[in-house]
Write a protein that binds this DNA or RNA. Sequence first.
RNA 1: CGGGACGUGGCGCAGCCUGGUAGCGCGCUUGACUGGGGGUCAAGAGGUCGCAAGUUCAAAUCUUGUCGUCCCGACCA
Length: 572
Amino acid sequence: MRWTQTFIPTMKEVPSDAEVPSHRLMLRAGLIRQLMAGAYTYMPMGYRVVRKVSQIVREEMDRAGAIELFMPAIQPMELFERTGRREAFGNVLFNFETRRGDRKLHFALGPTHEEVITDLMAHEIKSYKQLPLTLYQIQTKFRNEERPRFGVLRTSEFLMKDAYSFGSSMEQLNAAYDAMYNAYCRIFERCGLEYIPVEAESGPIGGDASHEFMAPADNGEDFVVRCPGCGYAANQERADTGRSSEIPTARADAPAPVKVDTPEAGSIDDVSRMLKADPATFIKTLIYVADNKPVAVLIRGDHEANEGKIRRALSATSLELADPATIESVTSAPVGFAGPVGLSCTLLADHDIAALESAITGANEKGAHLTGVIPGTHFELTTTHDLRNAAADDPCPKCDAKLEIVHGIEVGHVFKLGTKYSESLDACFLDSAEKKHPLIMGCYGIGVTRVVAAIVETCHDDNGIRWPVNVAPYTVELIPLNVKDEEVMSAANGIYDQLTASGIDVLMDDRDQRPGFKFKDADLIGLPVRIVIGGKGLKEGIAEIRRREDDDAQRVPLAEAVTFVQQLLQQS
RNA sequence: CGGGACGUGGCGCAGCCUGGUAGCGCGCUUGACUGGGGGUCAAGAGGUCGCAAGUUCAAAUCUUGUCGUCCCGACCA
């Protein structure tokens, strides 16, 4: 392709509201343009990358035995009502009513396709002989994000590969899951994207029922805990923390807690500064309302509560932080002064509370805290639970090394669903004894457009993008330095033709611009290999060839240029 | 949904406090020169200052409302 024949609007200056590298670079390199918050056009160069990633995904899905199909983005609302996801999605689900004649129809734009495909299988699958089956599609998904952000990393409309497996047994599910897991590893490797598979939501099936694939990146919205010792990795929300310490027995001889005045100081930070005490010696008392009943959750002052774990520990269906009025009625103090001593509601303590010998807590009285509070003595402590997020330096649950925490971008997710959807949508098969069972399902997603952004987020330098070879919009950028020089142009055209003939995607910058200008743009759009044809080199019969990541160009005789490029590409 | 910031030619910004002729850099057009890391000179085009109402003789500037975008947080099957 010749630059003047395509459409690559690069920008020297960055639009002021782009902050993260992928957003800035994708705008500057002319890969994307914004239509509105959370919706972007993929420009010709950007769309080429999307297609390359899609193609890698498609090849690996096919290799893993999945079959491609294509489902509608418009879906009847009724399906979401049957699976209960209308409520679960809430405002995230785009839904709208429309008319056909005098009928009123209620639609949703597909945020994902469990409903549609399970409904399809309900009609089509009759016998265990038709199983196992894994189907996938690459399609636009719609989610009304409350807050789209970071350019193309989080949008309301994005391209996703979603696959669904159907089996008649756990063995079939496990085999499909493993096949997808391995395909995902290959996909991210081929895309040149660093990734960490992490344990995620374990769901009702337990064990290793779900993994997320995280691309480590400073701007990732997710936190991953990782053990440098044994390789254990998990989503911070899901990582196990601490083991149960021994529950201390009540000490009759223990001195009573001492009340101290802490006027105006409600937060742990304020009080720890005022009392010059380590937050790790505090007990944070959070009042939650679980299924309409108040519960006091005790977490060490320097730790973060994890609502998912709390909900599970209580087997509660609903859980939210109590409003100020409820807190006041439970603790008889305003927000910020709650403590476990003398509270009448249920107490739920994190494992690490048991290990505290003497703690600081709220006094359930405005402007006062208690010091010298002994768990098990000054308040009842019979069991403890894992209720908090893992933190850096926590011991690894698998070995004893200290955990580290890294930011990650979630680029893929594999999940053992079980029979959740097949039961609610009545998708069943008959076994060899003519007995009816719900299909056993798995679902597997990759955010294709997010993968593109994640690649840019991780592969760039100060001058621009550095595309991995397999996903680069073109493989080679060919720069004739002076397009008015006939010799230069004829040499460049010759190399262009040879590269094209040997199957290499080449972009020739045939614009009548000064060399510096073209070099800057070449660095910005970041194709893996750059070939410069200029008057100086031409006199000696050489082209200058440089990989994007190298500092210096190699001088290569014109006749050998194409072979040289092929060798470079094989090394990459 | 809570908190914060910003809307002035395509992009980046100044002007606003203290009301009175809309400005700069980049980009764009035409021409000449130039030609190895975002050139030089000359001549141009392009903006009812997000929108609406109000105050005023007069509003980019003051007031109110509204819409949009971004950031932090909450949320994210």
